[in-house]
Write a protein that binds this DNA or RNA. Structure first.
Lengths: 332, 332
DNA sequence: CGTTTTATTGTAAACGGTTAATTTCTGAAA
DNA sequence: TTTCAGAAATTAACCGTTTACAATAAAACG
């Protein structure tokens, strides 16, 4: 690999002069500048960012620790974050959440000396929060948040749960199932709380068998639906707390010969792209902000990284909004 | 940030001893090893991988330059690649293809000293190929390939084009539209060639107006469909050369009140997940290999990175396979 | 014309590790 | 007792940059 030393030799100057050409060309004589730039071109010189990072104590790289892309919600956020970062001169390391072994990811990321971290995969009382704070690296959470606060952008999950549930109640459903991920995450915790609150507020019984905690994979959703189908007091509507899972429900129920919404109403959440497809038409919950959630996160992260002094924490809870499409209908 | 020097001081040893504890603990006395490890723990020491990378001249990081995730094909490949890389100790920088400004991405990536590159976004005669070769960094292409060969995994696009077209011909369609991306990429070049070959082989006219080259965005697909709808000899079937575009066609035509496949047959390509959804049921093309395409790519890349001497080039062309679902039907 | 600025370049040190070469120490063999 | 091998630790050099500081020469000043 050709280094600035090689360029210096070729141009007949000292190596720091080459460095100056790169960083502050006004500080160098026009004549030498030409010489050096010519040598750079001839040798096809590319500055070594690793060396620069070491010296400058910043890497111009960030880490995105994201939920799995098979949930399209994370497709949008990943795209937004990676592209915005790139436009602002940052490179993005991407990692996908791992059942279990998450700690090693954080550890690796910190060793990599990233300038900041964006994460969606934190638990309400995740000990990683304190570790990250101790490491002193800026980080912002999106989608999920932590009990200790910090910087985050989320949707009002409780309110969202109420919204979806009330929508189904208003259609005449009273036997409403809830399918979601682990409630030690703020998202599902809130969405479950909202569901329960809405049921109670209307004096509807919440039967424990209607509440299905799954690991959000298709198989686990299918199993949950199977179990619901075997119940005596079978629900007539399902609040599937992510669109990804709602699609799995819809698909499986249709495969089993049921008609949506005639036999079952399904309401999802996230308003991922495909839900608007004419053949899908999934009722869902979105938020009423112009900016996508990932954008808030990355904008704020880069502000934090580049600000002289720590800016005030971003604690953003977006207002949820119901989108009624064709997968929810009156109880028959 | 606490460095190995701090650990050394705390443990009362020299700094290289700390390094040896990290890299080859057998070379260090049990007693000192304990001392050092204790100090590491107490100070919460994390080795600086940037410094290590500089010295070792390898970063244990790779770059993935991918097509946009809104095409779900790249969702699967990205997931596969990032996860496999991580399991093998590599960190993945992700970039999404950019209309136009691709060169700067490659430049940035090379400056970052990545150990290898995986890319899907290369043109048949892309000059970047020679640049990458000159830079001496291992790289493998997936999905698309380059005229000069190199390391790649692709699907037989010509064959795939024939397969899809023949399927539609057999259903009685003779007026078949082709919608695809720019033909200076090997994928669309091949898929168009196969379509034309199949038409000619059956003595069917290929009307130039039926061939729509778009930029693969939803808007451009909609515009193409609009134009097709205005033709006198309107096609009765569409070969949309990625599932992403096929879904856009299906959605738009349904919105316009057409019925699929009664009014139009649609065949996609890639077999992305959602196409199997009961409400979508898109006919499509896949390949008959057990491994996903991205896996071939990343496996080979890591082999290239870690092999003593350059392994033989991987030039893999997977056999396409037709999946018939419900969006293609007999001509009415 | 001597002295002070200013512009430009070079020298040296540093970032945090790895690793080759060297030193120190121990204990066994002669 | 002397010698020497081997183990374990230290010292020094290096990776490719940036940057503080010193040196030099040219320009500006009174």
């Amino acid at each position: 690999m050709v280094s600035s030393k090689d360029v210096a030799k070729a141009a007949g100057v000292s190596q720091p002069t080459v460095s100056r050409v790169l960083n502050d060309p006004t500080k160098v004589n026009q004549e030498t500048l030409d010489k050096v730039e010519k040598a750079m071109k001839e040798l096809n010189y590319r500055p070594n960012l690793i060396a620069r990072s070491l010296k400058q104590q910043k890497t111009k790289s960030i880490a995105l620790i994201s939920g799995p892309l098979h949930n399209s919600f994370f497709v949008d956020t990943t795209t937004t974050i990676v592209n915005y970062a790139k436009e602002h001169g940052y490179h993005t390391f991407v990692y996908f959440e791992d059942q279990g072994d998450n700690l090693s990811v954080y550890d690796e990321v910190l060793k990599q000396q990233v300038d900041g971290i964006i994460l969606s995969s934190i638990f309400i009382d995740d000990p990683i929060y304190k570790e990250l704070e101790a490491a002193g690296v800026p980080f912002v959470m999106f989608n999920r948040k932590h009990q200790d606060g910090g910087n985050y952008v989320e949707i009002d999950n409780h309110r969202a749960g109420e919204l979806a549930t009330n929508h189904l109640l208003k259609l005449g459903h009273t036997k409403i199932a809830w399918i979601g991920g682990p409630t030690y995450t703020s998202t599902f915790h809130g969405r479950l709380g909202g569901y329960q609150a809405a049921m109670k507020a209307t004096n509807n019984e919440v039967v424990p068998e209607w509440i299905k905690q799954v690991d959000t994979t298709e198989e686990s959703v299918i199993q949950a639906v199977d179990e619901l189908l075997l119940l005596n007091n079978k629900p007539t509507a399902i609040f599937a707390t992510t669109d990804s899972m709602a699609l799995d429900c819809q698909n499986y129920l249709m495969q089993m010969g049921y008609r949506i919404p005639d036999n079952f109403s399904i309401c999802g959440m996230d308003n991922i792209n495909i839900t608007a497809h004419e053949a899908i038409q999934l009722s869902t919950i979105t938020h009423d902000s112009k900016k996508p959630m990932g954008l808030y996160a990355i904008e704020h992260l880069i502000t934090m990284i580049e600000a002289e002094e720590t800016p005030p924490a971003m604690q953003l809870t977006l207002e949820p909004k119901l989108i009624i499409r064709e997968t929810t209908g009156p109880k028959r």
